[in-house]
């Protein structure tokens, strides 16, 4: 159904475009403005790209070249030293694996619970619906804050466990509302027909609702996974054991606290040299940690846009 809409939209847009072309060509000042608009957009694209490319290219340069001359395209200055050092040290890899575990666990729990609750709340005539809605919505306006939440997690004995990272933020009330809105939009006749055929609630949910809900599940999962992957704060306050650190905390040590991981400078270096190497490692660490998402996201662009759109429904 959505694809149909997109197709229609495109056609419509094309038509509008042609109409615009026809009419706009009459006005000279409009063409000047469109030209300025194009130049400004190119400028925007450059501003976005330059820092990213700088880090990417810098990560392949020798440290002394990078720090004294800046970016250089001379092949003699190329080096994979930064990457070699990163992979020599286990912490980035371990952080990577930890992050995959946290993000996957978070996604499964968060999306599963959200979908189930959203479905129940979408059923017409659910007794007590109003109570549950108020129960959920109230948390959007008021919360206990950082300290009481921390004390609770501590009281539950979750400090320094995976659960402290995953559970406290797993339920976004906003997401439950989104799921509910989506389920409400599904045609009621399907459910009715299945019910007349004698299907139970569980069966209806599993065999009719869920297959129709792939888009919303996918969108919720995508946002949950990336949100967890990129976050550091929960992990920073709840985890003490370094072997449990997610990637972002390891990156924080390297990029912001300027701590050099022992495995990365296994060779004995002079102090000045070590500083240069530490600087170099930052570039490679950024690339290694950010590239997977940046490469993958264009394939999912459609879903991200959809996610924003679903979110804009009142």
């Amino acid at each position: 159904m959505n694809d149909l809409m997109v197709g229609l939209d495109k056609k419509k847009r094309k038509k509008i475009g042609q109409a615009k072309n026809r009419l706009i060509n009459n006005s000279k000042s409009d063409r000047v403005i469109l030209f300025i608009n194009k130049m400004l957009l190119i400028f925007v694209v450059i501003i976005v790209l330059v820092p990213l490319l700088y880090v990417l290219i810098g990560s392949f340069l020798q440290p002394q070249v990078l720090l004294t001359q800046g970016i250089s395209f001379n092949p003699e200055h190329w080096s994979l030293d930064g990457y070699r050092r990163i992979f020599n040290d286990g912490s980035i890899l371990r952080g990577f694996l930890n992050s995959i575990m946290y993000a996957t666990g978070f996604t499964v729990i968060s999306v599963g619970v959200t979908i189930l609750a959203g479905y129940s709340l979408s059923v017409d005539g659910l007794v007590g619906k109003k109570f549950f809605m108020v129960f959920f919505l109230f948390t959007m306006f008021f919360n206990g804050g950082m300290v009481p939440t921390y004390l609770l997690v501590k009281e539950l004995g979750l400090i320094n466990t995976v659960w402290a990272v995953i559970l406290p933020g797993a339920i976004g009330v906003w997401n439950i509302i989104l799921a509910r809105t989506y389920f409400k939009g599904l045609p009621n006749e399907l459910k009715e027909a299945a019910r007349i055929d004698g299907a139970s609630d569980v069966k209806i949910f599993l065999s009719i609702i869920l297959p129709l809900s792939k888009p919303i599940i996918f969108v919720l999962a995508l946002y949950a996974f990336i949100g967890q992957w990129n976050s550091y704060f929960q992990a920073m306050i709840y985890l003490e054991d370094r072997s449990l650190y997610p990637l972002q905390l390891i990156l924080r040590e390297i990029l912001i606290q300027n701590e050099v991981q022992p495995g990365m400078i296994a060779d004995q270096l002079a102090r000045a040299e070590m500083q240069r190497v530490a600087e170099m490692i930052k570039y490679s660490a950024i690339v290694v940690s950010s590239l997977p998402l940046l490469i993958m996201y264009p394939f999912f662009q459609k879903y991200f846009e959809k996610g924003v759109m679903v979110g804009s429904l009142k």
Binding site: V48, L251, L255, L294
Partner: peptide, 15 residues
């Protein structure tokens, strides 16, 4: 292109 920075983590941005 202009959506891309959104997917970079806050740690990396500050770095």
């Amino acid at each position: 292109i202009i959506y891309a920075p959104h997917f970079i983590s806050v740690v990396v941005i500050v770095g």
